[in-house]
């Protein structure tokens, strides 16, 4: 049911962990729903220089977390806001229909991290 790329990203996820001195952090989901994603970003001159995540969730949630954080590194925050779950799914070669909702988590967590970064920057 999962593509080879999904299983690979799930088995060897990239960017796992936390950034101590992060510039933005977003956390989406709930334990009750069975998936939670936490994203940390480091931003310099409007460019995301580092991104890390922690995810409680299924193989699809972990694979999309890894791929999405990999995609936004090097992007400007505005470019990163345009990274949709559909783009992440395309990079992974597709997800089973019942798993699409799991990929929305990564998109939302990244958006939340960027919101957090923007509000911190505005208040700085």
């Amino acid at each position: 049911m999962y593509t080879q790329k999904v299983m690979e990203a799930f088995q060897n996820p990239k960017n796992v962990g936390e950034i101590e001195d992060y510039d933005g952090m977003g956390m989406i989901g709930s334990e009750a729903c069975g998936d939670i994603m936490q994203v940390f970003i480091k931003v310099e001159n409007g460019v995301i220089t580092d991104a890390k995540f922690k995810t409680f969730g299924c193989a699809a949630a972990i694979a999309t977390s890894s791929t999405a954080t990999e995609m936004i590194k090097g992007m400007t925050v505005d470019e990163a806001l345009a990274v949709t779950n559909k783009k992440v799914i395309d990079v992974l070669g597709g997800l089973p229909p019942q798993k699409i909702h799991c990929s929305v988590l990564a998109e939302q967590a990244i958006k939340a991290a960027i919101e957090d970064y923007k509000s911190r920057a505005a208040n700085a």
Binding site: Y2, M7, F10, G34, F56, G57, A61
Partner: peptide, 14 residues
């Protein structure tokens, strides 16, 4: 605790 069952299932499957 702290682990989701499907991810555990697929890790074991691998």
């Amino acid at each position: 605790r702290y682990v989701e069952g499907e991810s555990l299932l697929f890790s074991l499957d691998l």
